[in-house]
Every structure is written in C-alpha cells, then in structure tokens.
C-alpha cells in the first residue's frame, strides 16, 4: 500500500519516469508532470472527452484513469500526431474544414478520430457519429467536424495508395 508510486510510461515514443501521488489522474500526469499540455482537462468526470488520449492503441479518458494505472503503458497524445512540424492528415483536415473554432475540445476529437480511422478507414456517417458521440464541442455544431473526418479519411486513403 502506498500513497506515492513510480510511474514509467512511454508517451509519443519517449520514455518517462516520475514518482507521483497515486491519486494523480493520467490527464494531470501528462500536463503537470510531463508538461504535455496539449491534452485538455474539461469536465474531469468523463463527460466532455477533451482529455481523450490513446493508451496501448485504444482511446481512453485520461481524467478517468490514475497515472499509476497507466504504468508500463504506451500513451499517445495530440502532441504525437504532427511529424516534425508537419500536421497529421487528420489535423490538416480539421484545419481546412473548420473542424474547430476555440480548439479546446480538438485534442480529444483528434485522438478519437485517430482511433476510428485506424480501425475503420472509410466510416459511414453513422459510424463517425457513434465514435465521436462522447466528444463535446460547443463551437462548431459538429457539421464541420463531420466534414473534417471524411476529409481526413480521404487524405489517409490517398496517402496509402
């Protein structure tokens, strides 16, 4: 039993080790301990989706996990999308199709879309809505986000040919 524990994780390909309080969420671990502030903390109870990251390839709410639960895991955050300053096709599509306005929810959307298009390269409107139903955006009204996801799917399909 402990109140403090060492957490070792790989985030966007980089290994980190920190001794943290066990009550620290993964979201706060990423932001405060690692300085990766791209992951946003909105509601802190799993409703808004802004803090979504990938853990071992699956999208998770980083506010609904303790950092100690991620010990040994591979994490990918929004900072892991761009390649040497070049936007990821999903990011490019969100920019071109106005898939964001204030941008607070965007890191969560991008990671959820990343998981979706990884397993389903050509999703239907229904499948996009289902996979993004847990991401809340208060600016766009979602129509431009739908267009962004379809554009991203087309970009990624083009890149594969």
């Amino acid at each position: 039993m402990t109140m403090q524990q060492v957490v070792k994780v790989t985030v966007n390909g980089v290994s980190y080790e920190r001794n943290v309080e066990v009550r620290l969420t993964l979201a706060d671990f990423l932001r405060v301990e690692l300085g990766l502030t791209g992951t946003h903390v909105g509601c802190e109870h799993g409703v808004c989706g802004a803090c979504t990251v990938l853990m071992n390839g699956r999208s998770v709410r980083s506010c609904l996990m303790l950092a100690v639960q991620a010990d040994g895991a591979e994490i990918m955050t929004v900072e892991g999308l761009a390649d040497d300053g070049r936007l990821h096709p999903i990011q490019q599509a969100f920019m071109e199709e106005h898939g964001l306005q204030c941008g607070f929810c965007t890191p969560g959307f991008l990671m959820a879309v990343y998981e979706l298009l990884g397993s389903n390269p050509d999703p239907s409107d229904e499948e996009i809505r289902e996979s993004l139903g847990g991401q809340i955006c208060r600016c766009t009204g979602y129509q431009s986000i739908m267009r962004s996801v379809k554009s991203a799917a087309a970009k990624l399909a083009g890149a594969r040919v």
Partner: peptide
C-alpha cells in the same frame, strides 16, 4: 477499482473517499 469509469468520477468529485483503493 476495475475499469474505473464510474468510480473515477466519484473520486474526482470526492463523493467517494476510500481509505484504500485496490486496483
């Protein structure tokens, strides 16, 4: 704590205040 998707909100909102969390 198993998946924590109900317990973590309760902890974050301090509605649950366990002495010991067994993961």
């Amino acid at each position: 704590i198993a998946g924590g998707q109900s317990l973590m909100p309760l902890l974050n909102m301090r509605l649950a205040r366990p002495d010991l969390l067994v993961d």
